[in-house]
Design a protein around this nucleic acid. Structure first.
Lengths: 153, 153
DNA sequence: TTAAATGCAAATCGTTTGCATCTGT
DNA sequence: ACAGATGCAAACGATTTGCATTTAA
């Protein structure tokens, strides 16, 4: 699937790329480089970090994966996932670390409106929520000892 | 202003903190650690990187600054700004690098709706757009040589 | 054959930390 | 006085790069 896009653009298809692409497609959401490398090595032990990064770069260039920001409180690493047609909303629980993705037609509408009103040609749009999920739902915001709190509105 | 919040929580107010806080407030949007250090050094040459990061950490802990993601194509650095009451939308032009912030009531509405529908207690919300601004407005999406394209929808 | 892709190791860059020293209260 | 803040330098972790080697077309 993704591989076809590359072939269509006459990009050389190597064994490593095939594996990396498979892993990305099977893994679904928010895969990071480390995990991608790890999963890929299960199928091709010799594969290198650099190849992972270079392949990601290539896929981004063709618009086949999107790069996500680190959610709040995460180390400065990046996550990747196969592209989807509709834009997702990402909801990260700052307490348990769980990340949920979903769609919203109001969000779709907002995107359209923004594009029209600003004359901005949108290539990527990213909506991320950070907070406490229903299951965790912190009774009160800690004052001085959580260390990962980014906001307190 | 920000300083008062700290004092109210009986946080020790040092010379360095005073300077850093001033700079953050005067600088406005998307300041990164490097720039913050640079500006602060104009007023207090000896100030150290570590102090900058530690102060940012402190301000985040009290909810006085929010941490923003890197926009598309940026190196993995983080930006900081004094907090505002209303949530802004951030629009980054991938061609000229310009970043604009603005508000939208539809966005405000979306936030409320999400919170209600998901039972998620939102602490931070971040909406970022990446694309081409009106002035740049690329006639066509480049295929293979921009290097910063993240998406092609 | 040969331009492009890979592995390896070293380099970058932002950020964090340990520890001895200094400072606000 | 002394808990907490700072500077310095070294550590860290993700990502990137130079270069000799391998590989797909």
């Amino acid at each position: 699937l993704l591989a076809d896009h590359l072939l269509a653009n006459s990009v050389r298809m190597t064994a490593q790329r095939r594996v990396l692409i498979e892993v990305i497609q099977e893994a679904g959401e928010h895969l990071d480089a480390r995990m991608l490398l790890q999963l890929a090595r299960r199928r091709m032990p010799g594969i290198d970090r650099a190849t992972v990064y270079r392949t990601i770069e290539l896929l981004k260039k063709f618009g086949l994966v999107s790069e996500l920001g680190r959610f709040q409180a995460e180390r400065a690493k990046r996550y990747y996932e196969a592209r989807t047609n509709r834009d997702r909303i990402r909801m990260a629980c700052l307490l348990c670390g769980r990340v949920d993705c979903f769609f919203s037609s109001l969000f779709d509408r907002l995107k359209t409106e923004l594009s029209h009103q600003t004359g901005f040609e949108i290539h990527v749009i990213r909506l991320e929520l950070g907070g406490s999920c229903k299951s965790c739902c912190a009774p009160k915001r800690p004052d001085v000892d959580v260390g990962s709190t980014e906001d307190g509105a």
